[in-house]
């Protein structure tokens, strides 16, 4: 009996320790809390690296992006709403870049839930996406952010000391890019 109990405890410990990184978050990122840890490969494209302020290679975490605010769109090339909203999100990028309050401070990026690099590339090419998109082929990031439906926007504010907090976490795309940026500036405190 004692032996069985020891085996059971050993298995339980293994399940807890090893499953921690692959467990699905129970909810979407919570406003006011920290973003779950997301590791991404540094983009190959020079313009993407330069936009995000990243080194030449390796991996990075979202709060390492050179910005005050990072807006992350969880999307999929297989998602009709994401397809329909793609050009409006492009306009959001242009609005951000045209506004002195946000240019260089607010960075936009997308993560393709369940999408391979090829599929993300097809989405970028089809809609002429001007900002960096990242694949999440095994849904690991999608799981970490609570398996949200798509499109989903997460806004994080990066503080000077490198800490960060989620200030926006909502299902849905962008209706009006100007209003959306205003809201992001207000909610993040950048305004």
């Amino acid at each position: 009996m004692k032996k069985i109990l020891i085996h059971f405890i050993a298995i339980a410990v293994c399940v807890f320790v090893f499953s921690f990184p692959v467990m699905t978050a129970e909810s979407a990122p919570i406003e006011g809390a920290m973003l779950p840890e997301i590791n991404l490969a540094v983009p190959v494209k020079d313009s993407d690296r330069s936009y995000l302020g990243l080194p030449a290679s390796g991996f990075f975490k979202i709060p390492q992006i050179k910005a005050k605010v990072v807006l992350i769109q969880i999307f999929s090339m297989y998602c009709p709403h994401c397809q329909g909203n793609a050009r409006t999100v492009n306009k959001l990028y242009n609005v951000i870049e045209d506004n002195p309050k946000s240019k260089g401070k607010v960075k936009l990026t997308g993560i393709g839930a369940g999408n391979s690099s090829y599929e993300v590339g097809i989405f970028a090419q089809t809609y002429d996406i001007p900002f960096p998109l990242f694949p999440d082929m095994d849904y690991s990031i999608h799981k970490a952010v609570g398996e949200v439906r798509t499109p989903y926007f997460i806004g994080i504010k990066i503080n000077n000391d490198g800490t960060h907090r989620v200030f926006y976490s909502k299902l849905g795309g962008v209706n009006n890019p100007d209003q959306f940026l205003d809201m992001m500036l207000q909610l993040s405190g950048l305004n």
């Binding site: 692959v22 369940g114 398996e147 299902l171």
Partner: peptide, 18 residues
């Protein structure tokens, strides 16, 4: 335990459009 984790960690996933 490790084998168990492997199977727990490979459950199906999908990113459903809203």
């Amino acid at each position: 335990g490790i084998v168990l984790i492997f199977f727990l960690g490979t459950t199906s996933s999908y990113g459903l459009s809203d």
